[in-house]
């Protein structure tokens, strides 16, 4: 990628981040109810209407008295200095909260992505164009897997393998064995999706002349599948993985909730409920950032897998 290409990419990334911050800020500002009342009532566990004198110090502390534009500029100014602000609800700097929570979520999503690839590749190599029964079984599994909702799959896996069989921990520890069920919950549906596109591509590639010629040179079936066909067949799946990252983060919110697993998802849901603007914006911008980086990685992965792209 040329220097100009990199610069354009970076500018685009900053634009996406700015837009994400702006959008989130204004949406949250439009929310019903009074933010100062919310902060005060949450601290005391009450739901009552507050008097002006009770609200005044909170309004002053968080700058709610300023105009919306003033608050927005103040917020953007902080962002430009790398200051994500302080959470209304958790009374801690947003960057620290995210830093504390992001680790387990990244581990979960990356593991899920690896599981998804492993499952779909094994399935594709083992069943694609291997006769009608095998093919149907393989594609049938993919179709079903792709349609499984995380919340349902997660609860079923939890009850069967953790609560009844006791093979895995019930609550989401960060240990390896505690990672298996959540990552499978997140990975299985994705495996279905990746499997579907990879299989289509794989079958097409197996009909190509160069495959026939490789076979004619005496290469074994497994060799053809893994050395030649796979390399071409994974491209759409890689694109899909880039797109899937955002989806994986969404799924992580639910999976973390089902398995009581630490991570950004739990924090996000409660922050959205509490209208914790700095925290929600921080998470949104992080996700936007992840999205931008992931798509950059997808481009890179393309050039590695498909040498023709290198000169492009």
């Amino acid at each position: 990628m040329s220097a100009r290409g990199v610069a354009v990419r970076l500018l685009g990334a900053i634009g996406v981040l700015w837009a994400a911050a702006t959008f989130t800020f204004f949406v949250q500002t439009l929310l019903p109810g009074d933010r100062a009342t919310l902060i005060l009532n949450q601290e005391s566990g009450q739901t009552i209407k507050r008097t002006a004198s009770e609200l005044a110090p909170i309004n002053a502390k968080y700058g709610f008295d300023d105009s919306i534009v003033g608050q927005y500029l103040h917020y953007l100014g902080g962002l430009a200095r790398g200051d994500l602000g302080s959470s209304y609800q958790l009374h801690e700097p947003v960057a620290r909260i995210i830093g504390d929570q992001i680790g387990p979520t990244i581990v979960l999503t990356v593991t899920a992505l690896l599981f998804a690839w492993a499952i779909s590749l094994v399935l594709t190599i083992a069943t694609a164009k291997r006769g009608r029964v095998r093919s149907t079984l393989g594609s049938g599994f993919e179709t079903i897997a792709a349609g499984l909702p995380h919340y349902w799959l997660g609860v079923v896996l939890l009850v069967v393998f953790a609560i009844d069989l006791k093979w895995f921990p019930v609550e989401g520890e960060t240990s390896l064995s505690g990672l298996v069920l959540p990552a499978l919950t997140l990975g299985i549906p994705l495996a279905g999706f990746i499997g579907q596109v990879t299989r289509d591509e794989f079958e097409k590639v197996l009909d190509q002349p160069f495959v026939t010629s490789a076979r004619a040179r005496g290469m074994g079936d497994l060799g053809v599948r893994t050395r030649h066909a796979l390399r071409h067949a994974v491209l759409p799946g890689i694109t899909l993985s880039g797109w899937a990252l955002g989806a994986l983060f969404s799924g992580a919110v639910i999976v973390e909730s089902v398995f009581a697993r630490p991570g950004i998802g739990q924090v996000l849901v409660s922050a959205a409920n509490a209208r914790d603007i700095p925290l929600v914006s921080g998470v949104v911008m992080l996700l936007a950032f992840v999205y931008v980086v992931a798509n950059l990685l997808v481009d890179l992965a393309y050039t590695v897998v498909d040498p023709r792209m290198r000169t492009a």
């Binding site: 609860v155 939890l158 009850v159 953790a162 609560i163 006791k166 921990p169 019930v170 609550e171 520890e173 909730s257 089902v258 398995f259 009581a260």
Partner: peptide, 19 residues
Amino acid sequence: WKFLGDQTVRYGSLTNHQS
């Protein structure tokens, strides 16, 4: 002091000796 909001998980955590 763990926050286990889901009741199935919370009770399961006790029966599985995690709490």
